[in-house]
Design a protein around this nucleic acid. Structure first.
Lengths: 231, 231
DNA sequence: AGAAGCCTTAACGAACTCTTAACGGCATCG
DNA sequence: CGATGCCGTTAAGAGTTCGTTAAGGCTTCT
């Protein structure tokens, strides 16, 4: 079961601390990128789209508050401050500028971890309630977030692989998806030539979803290339 | 245009502190309610629906962590901890139980205000989830704030873990909840692979709630993924 | 101190899913 | 016309996950 790991961006100029954080965070299963200056950090945040930012306020090239504001200008990604300065006015300024939490060095690793979990938890709840993404095509209705499939109002139960296969097709609905692509998205990057699996599971899906599996309405086969989901 | 002021619930047993917070917060334009015990606080949270909860962990009648969990069972309202105990393990436990921030007494008022603003800011992004502390499905009625479960008018007594498990499912009612997710919400963020616990406790729940545990009406199992509560 | 209740842990059979193999139809190409 | 390759279909075995039960340790209450 491959799950994409959570990405954290560390903006910090002191190398020992970066190394320490890298070891600690990667040990917890997070993937990590780092930047040594504010400029670099802002750019990196734009390109790698982290799930959380750890920011040291004492950067050499620009004010930490400015980094917060520049990042907040276009994203709500959680920002946790780690700073040597423990002045209350500094904390208030950073928090009001858009930071989500503020830790003063030296801090304990368990507390840092807990506060990172809090920030990530809050951020993940944003899409929790209304934002279930539906896909509809004729009588077929799929709730990707809720793992639900309805056909003519009737619920259809799919196995994990069946659902992943359907979800992958929905992600590229209307376009052709090659065998390779499907195999990578459903089974992971290892399998790439076993286009055999596909036939078995496409058949399973058609048997559950199509009225007449011989003449498919939803899952069309593009001979020699792959499959395509009708929109 | 009438602007409803933001409501804050203070759960704190020391009267001087309550008075101090009342003066400070009302001066900032918040409206305030207070409760002196955990029981009272949980009940008050269910009825007055505050926008934020300030919670002292050192309550006379029950463990502060239990208060957090009981409130978290049915709402994502921001919880900010104010505590005399500054032990890192206390902080981690509270944050992992569902708190959003943790301040150690004595704290500065400006910092408290700033952290309250952060918590409110984060929560407002989520938008209104029409949360209710009651859940009903067929013969099953659950009062999340009151920790009560009724089946066909008959009261059912659940153990703490059984109730947390049921509450977690209710929070995502209708959608599939993965094993990971359930383990995190019920046991904390550490356990993530012990999907074994789930089977035991799901079985306990079904034995207490379902007419025919073999053919569940409420707690459905999504093979290979997790569980789902019928709506 | 004793008892009761709850959580953890282990074990085993049953049900389900995934993998793998085999076969037939259909089209293209030599 | 036969060979080859791709796709659909089916079935069986292996492997994994799920349900169920019970015993032991821990905490809590009396």
């Amino acid at each position: 079961m491959s799950e994409k790991s959570i990405a954290i961006l560390v903006i910090e100029d002191e190398l020992p601390i970066v190394r320490f954080l890298r070891a600690t965070l990667e040990n917890q299963g997070y993937s990590l990128r780092d930047a040594a200056t504010g400029q670099e950090g802002i750019a990196e945040a734009g390109t790698c789209r982290p799930d959380l930012i750890l920011l040291d306020l004492g950067l050499p090239d620009m004010d930490g508050l400015e980094v917060i504001r520049r990042v907040r200008a276009w994203t709500d990604v959680p920002i946790v401050i780690i700073s040597a300065r423990g002045q209350e006015s500094d904390k208030v300024a950073a928090l009001d500028a858009g930071a989500d939490d503020y830790l003063t060095k030296p801090f304990g690793v368990p507390e840092l971890m807990a506060r990172i979990r809090v920030a990530l938890r809050r951020a993940s709840h944003v899409g929790d309630h209304g934002e279930s993404s539906f896909f509809t095509c004729g009588d077929l209705k799929v709730d990707l977030a809720g793992h639900l499939v309805h056909l003519r109002g009737q619920e259809v139960s799919l196995t994990p692989i069946e659902f992943r296969l359907l979800a992958a097709m929905i992600k590229h609905a209307g376009k052709v998806i090659t065998h390779r692509q499907l195999l990578r998205e459903v089974w992971g990057p290892h399998l790439t030539d076993e286009s055999h699996y596909l036939r078995v599971f496409v058949h399973q899906l058609r048997r559950k979803l199509e009225d007449d599996p011989t003449r498919p309405k939803f899952i069309l086969t593009e001979a020699g290339i792959g499959y395509r989901l009708r929109v």
